[in-house]
Design a protein around this nucleic acid. Structure first.
Lengths: 202, 202
DNA sequence: TGGTTTACCGAACATTCGGTCAGTTGACAA
DNA sequence: TTGTCAACTGACCGAATGTTCGGTAAACCA
């Protein structure tokens, strides 16, 4: 269970800070689902009344929008990096996968929320569109890697992209930062499986 | 968009059949999310009024329960098969992965719904518990495969299970039966990537 | 033909939803 | 001591929620 905001989590006598509101809210969203979370649920988790939330945030949907931007901004910052643009496609792909795992772990609750969005509102549809843009970028990378011979030629780039990033994204379903591998450990295991395979080297 | 039940989908002059109610409802659940779907939404998709639904089903949650059982019964039928119990662990694992993909494709909407359950109600928690039981079975299989030398020894069985079935489950996020690969094609590509790796054979 | 059953409708139910607003509180500055 | 203001509370709103219920048209059976 997500704990209520303790006195320590508040600025001394200065009430909730915007960061706590967002991170606690996202925690509850991920526990109950966005639609399954009422403002009353959030209020309890924050240790205030429902109406107090509206002093800090315009509404429920804005809270979602801010959370989704946290995840998407991280992904697009990575795409903009030169290491995603220079060098052999296979190396760039490996770098992007590794960074994706890192961002997923660093911003776990926000990415988790993003991956569950289904487009029920304008906010969700906008987030989905940005996500698709990221997906197109990666699909292009895989295509290049196949063309350059970095990936075996008998695979469909679209299918491989979906499987590869499906594996990455599935980490949100079980990863617990407290007890568990680091982002690098995760990326190592994932890249090992996807690129070299699980079979013993003969 | 999920289409409203046409006259053709109904039994002639006999109203909705239980099968249509379930499959159409699950379609809407997957589009909007279970919590994001109102009985009014379901009524529209079924082409009847809200109250008519209660003639066929005790309530919203029962609809969910029936749908989740569709998915879980398929998975447990597979586990009970002798091909999951006899032979080399690596072969059994490969068979289970292949069958999982087949079930996922055959019962796509039901499995999709199952994978999104978060435990908000007793129904959901019961489904989660059955799912965990399935996961434990697979983790055991991976452990045996490592012990028998079918899978490289430098991996954590728990981690590999999660990555492997994370990949399988991620298929629900994008697979469209109409235009796309068959279950066998999917399983081939997935097993190739996970067991042999994406790198070209040298 | 008459009676029964099947499958539904329309209205209403209590409850919960996201959100508003007038007022209160307590820390701090003057 | 008084005034200011950020940070809330509590009462409340209209709309939407899942569910119930009395009624009914059409199909079916005797």
């Amino acid at each position: 269970m997500i704990e209520a905001a303790t006195q320590a989590q508040r600025r001394r006598g200065r009430g909730l800070d915007p960061e706590s509101v967002l991170s606690i809210a996202v925690g509850v969203f991920n526990e109950r689902g966005y639609d399954g979370t009422s403002m009353e649920d959030l209020a309890k988790a924050l240790g205030v009344t429902k109406s107090a939330i509206y002093y800090h945030v315009p509404g429920k949907e804005q809270l979602l929008a801010r959370a989704l931007d946290r995840a998407l901004d991280g992904l697009f910052a990575m795409v903009a990096d030169e290491r995603a643009a220079k060098g052999a496609a296979i190396d760039r792909l490996e770098w992007v996968v590794r960074q994706s795992v890192r961002i997923l772990v660093e911003r776990l609750p926000y990415v988790t929320l993003l991956l569950r969005v289904r487009g029920n509102s304008g906010t969700e549809q906008a987030a989905l569109e940005r996500r698709r843009e990221f997906d197109r970028f990666v699909t292009g990378l895989v295509g290049e890697a196949v063309a350059e011979g970095g990936i075996r030629a008998d695979v469909d780039p679209g299918l491989v992209t979906r499987l590869l990033f499906g594996t990455v994204n599935s980490i949100t379903e079980w990863y617990q930062p407290a007890r568990g591998a680091s982002a690098d450990d995760l990326a190592d295991a994932l890249l090992m499986m996807a690129f070299s395979g699980l079979r013993p080297t003969r």
